[in-house]
């Protein structure tokens, strides 16, 4: 009797299964890693660590910033993602450059970023300085613009002087284009204003001109080259860290 009941139970399982309630039904066959083109999967596996979940609040630039998406074109994105960004820690991802992604996957990432993070009219009709630097900047002028527009927010205190953006240590790890991108598009996730709001307190001010931006980047670059990274043993490198 008991056996029959059990046997019935066993055979009723597939019947229930047939009715659509089947938790054990296997997932779709696993794609080979190079065949994955789903944006969320690709982004979370390859980019989220540095650019943050959902493209913000990571240590590196917030790709989800609509102003950034409006500023940069597809070819540039493809160039950086495939080959890495010189002067920064952004690695190369294309197989042709020793990474793991096919060019179709790089394209899927770009298309996904556009779909998820682009907003129409991100600049309210104002046209920003171009993404790429065209002219050579003047570091001396740059310094005075920096003092006027940036310094008040970026003030090295005693504790963190060599951790701020004017420190050669920081600048050694960040390329000119990365600085330029941040100055123009801002980083809303960490409170860095865009080129229209680069002013004390982050108020709207006269937008930085193309020349201003060129000059500030040139100024910061000059600080980088000026700084031989201090040898570990002599630097007063102890800083009480910001908490968290």
């Amino acid at each position: 009797m008991r056996f029959i009941a059990l046997a019935l139970a066993v055979f009723s399982v597939p019947l229930v299964a047939g009715c659509g309630l089947r938790p054990g039904y296997p997932p779709n066959p696993m794609l080979r890693p190079t065949a994955v083109t789903d944006f969320a999967t690709l982004y979370n596996q390859n980019c989220a660590a540095c650019h943050g979940q959902n493209g913000q609040n990571g240590p590196s630039i917030d790709l989800a910033n609509p102003e950034y998406q409006a500023l940069v074109d597809d070819a540039t994105l493809r160039k950086w993602i495939s080959g890495g960004m010189p002067g920064t820690e952004m690695p190369a991802f294309a197989q042709s450059a020793g990474g793991m992604l096919t060019s179709a996957q790089v394209d899927a990432l770009i298309a996904g970023m556009r779909r998820n993070w682009q907003r129409p009219n991100a600049f309210d009709g104002v046209s920003p300085p171009p993404y790429a630097q065209a002219a050579v900047g003047d570091p001396v002028r740059g310094q005075s613009t920096y003092q006027a527009r940036c310094a008040q927010c970026h003030e090295p205190t005693r504790d963190s002087a060599n951790q701020q953006i004017t420190s050669p240590r920081y600048l050694a790890l960040v390329g000119d284009q990365a600085l330029r991108t941040i100055i123009i598009a801002g980083r809303p996730d960490i409170g860095q204003p865009d080129w229209r709001h680069d002013s004390p307190g982050g108020q709207a001010a006269a937008p930085l001109s193309v020349v201003d931006v060129d000059n500030i980047v040139a100024y910061l670059a000059s600080l980088r080259n000026l700084g031989q990274p201090a040898p570990a043993s002599t630097a007063s490198s102890h800083t009480t860290p910001a908490g968290r």
Partner: peptide, 8 residues
């Protein structure tokens, strides 16, 4: 509250 260097 990370500084730029800490972020890098």
């Amino acid at each position: 509250h990370a500084t730029p260097l800490v972020r890098q």
